[in-house]
Structure formats: C-alpha cells, structure tokens
Amino acid sequence: MKRGSLVCCLLGGLVLTSLSGCGYKNDPVAPQALVPVPIDDLRYELTDNGAVLHWSYPTETVSGEDLTEIDSFMLYRAEVPAADYCDTCPVPFDSPIKVDGGVIPEREGKRATSYDIGFLRPGHKYFFKVLSRTGWLTPSADSNQVSFTWETPPAVPQNLVAEASDSMVSLQWQPVSEHLDGSTADAIKYQVARKEDKGSFKNIGELLTMPEYVDTEVNGGHTYTYRVQALSEYEGDMVAGEFSTPYQAEVIDLFAPATPENVTTVRTANSVKIFWDQGDEADLAGFRIYRRLGNEDAPIMIGEVKMPYNIYEDTEAPDENMYVYYSVSSFDESDPPNESERSAEVEAE
C-alpha cells in the first residue's frame, strides 16, 4: 500500500472514531421510577405586599414508587398587562426559579412548602406553575396552574366578631371602603373562611355584598375559627386583600341524646342485669342507670357505662322480696354532658 493511501486510511479511521464517540444523541429519557407525580395542589394567598404560593411535596413516582426526598422545585412565573391579556394566547412564562427541596418525613408521609412572591405591578395578571425533580434529569410534569390579577387590594376587614348559639354562628365586621393606598374602593365583596377545631381554613359560602354572614353548617361541641377578606373587581378579575384577624367561636351543644328504649331486666342468683337498645347519635357517649326501691319516691343513679356497652349488672340489688325498679338515660360527649330523660321504669322480675 502506498504511503498516501495509508495516511488516508488512518485519517478516515480517526474521523470515524471521533464521530462514533461524539456524535449527536437524543436527550436521555428519565427512568420512570425517579420521576415524581405532578403537583396538583398549588394555590396562592394574597398579602399586603404580594402573594404566597403553597404546595405539597409529591410522595411517589409516576410508577407508584415511594419518594423519600425531592431535590428541588422549578417555579415558573409569567406577567401580562391585564389590558393585553388574551385567554387563548400561550402564557409567556419566564425562566424558572429554583426552590430547594428536602426530605419527605417517613411518619407523616407529607410535607408542604411555601414561596413568597414579590415585585407585583398593579394592573398586571400573574400566572404560576411548578414542577419537582429528584435529580437533574428527572423533572415531573407541570403542576396545576394558578393565576390572579394584581391591583392595589382592598383594606383588611376590621372588628370581626361572632356570636354562637347551639345551631349557628352569626358574623359581623366593619365594611371596607378603601384600598390599601387610601383610595376609594367601590362595590366591595367579602369572602368568609372557616376552620373547624384544629383543621385548616376553607372558604365557605358565596361572595357577599354585606359585611355579615350566618353560618348554619355547624355542630355543637366544636370550635370554629373565622376570618374574612375583602375583594374588588378589576378587568373582570377579583382582586383579593389580606384576611382579617381570626375570630374563634365555640358552638355549645344543648341537645341531649334520645332516651334509651326497650329497657329490660333479668334477675340472677346474685344480681339484676339491665339491658336496653343503643341510640345512633354521633356524639352518644354512654348511659346512666337508675334504681328505685318500692318504698322510695325518687330513683338514685347506681352506675354509668360508656359506649358501646348497653348492659349493666346491679350486684347490690335487694332480693326478690322487695320491689325494685330500673330506668336508663343517655348522655353525650359535651362538657358538661347533656343527659336525656330517663326511660320508663321497669320492675325487676
């Protein structure tokens, strides 16, 4: 072989080697076992200075495997002048903001995070979405998208008060007539939010035009906490202000459970056993047993049993030579408990 031909062969081999080692490749596909499921609970809360985004950590992959840690979140934000907004146009999201992740607790299996949003301009509409990833090449699909229009919000409702009865809570607050910057606010509406006992706040009812609300969806023996925000309309969107200071109301249960029915007795050699039918009230806590001797005018309570028992054994009952009568009442979980009327007396046989 001639020297020139040999050089050409060597060069060709080098070119082929180079091409095989550095040739163009498609993007690698992330293993499904590492890709988190999309976040589906992204939400926002407006504040005096902007907004706060909240969402939960995903706890499993798209293939159903448990996740122990999220490396990071990628938060996307878009800003559009409200006057130029087009609901059929694509949303012009900016480059994502990296938000650090962390370990997902094993015991609770759930973790949430928040992100403060600032630098909002009046008269603009804002859009947000977020995705999570367990590594550089394992991003999830997009979360649900949230949006709101930012304008100078209404002032915070003041002097929220609540009056509770056994079946409702009546709320009142001072009407809002200004924005936070002191300018006049017209056609203000209000949103009431409530949490029960140690639960989380949830909006209840429709938007209100008057600074008052009556909550009839309450149950006795529970504590309810309320807060109110004012909203004004701008370019077809509702601009929400910050929530008021919460107010707590305790609904007192004044209703006793139903009186026990079908009270019966069975005398044994050393006692009298008393039986009755249970009620079906959700807050039924137990029963009280009363005994009256034939020569007595009023019964006395001789015992108490808690749910789910509906039997009591009177080991101190007099023998069959003396008349003895029994009756039973029920009581609920209130403090102090509400007690029903006693059942009709039944003679021990």
Rank of each mutant, 00 (worst) to 15 (best):
M1T: 11
M1W: 01
G13W: 13
L14A: 15
S18D: 08
G23Y: 07
Q32T: 03
A33V: 11
V35C: 01
P36A: 11
L42E: 02
R43C: 08
E45V: 11
E45T: 07
D48Y: 00
G50H: 09
L53K: 11
W55I: 01
W55F: 13
T59L: 00
E65P: 01
E65G: 04
D66Q: 10
L67S: 11
E69I: 03
I70G: 02
S72T: 03
S72D: 10
E79S: 14
Y85H: 13
P90A: 12
P92L: 11
D94K: 13
K98L: 08
K98G: 00
V99N: 02
V99W: 05
V99A: 01
D100F: 05
G101L: 00
E108K: 09
E108R: 06
K110N: 02
R111C: 01
R111Q: 13
A112W: 05
S114T: 14
Y115F: 15
D116K: 13
F119C: 01
G123K: 04
H124T: 10
K125W: 02
S132M: 05
G135V: 10
L137D: 15
D142Q: 09
S143K: 03
F148W: 12
P154E: 07
A155N: 13
A155S: 13
V161G: 07
Q174A: 15
P175Y: 10
S177Q: 07
E178Y: 09
H179S: 01
Y190I: 06
Q191E: 15
V192P: 01
A193I: 00
A193H: 02
S200W: 08
K202Y: 09
N203I: 12
I204W: 02
E206A: 14
L207T: 06
T209F: 03
E212P: 03
D215G: 01
G220A: 11
G221Q: 08
Y224D: 05
Y226S: 05
R227C: 10
A230S: 12
L231C: 00
E233S: 14
Y234F: 15
Y234S: 14
D237Y: 07
M238E: 13
F243R: 03
E250W: 04
I252V: 15
P260H: 00
N262V: 03
T264L: 02
R267N: 07
R267T: 11
T268V: 00
A282N: 02
D283H: 01
L284I: 05
R288W: 00
R291V: 00
R291I: 09
N295Y: 14
D297L: 09
G303F: 06
V305M: 12
P308H: 11
P308V: 00
Y309V: 14
Y312H: 12
A317E: 04
D319A: 10
Y323G: 15
S329G: 06
S329P: 04
S330K: 04
S334H: 09
S334G: 04
P336D: 07
P337I: 00
N338G: 07
E339Q: 13
E345A: 09
E345D: 08
V346P: 01
V346D: 04
V346L: 02
E347Y: 02
E347A: 10
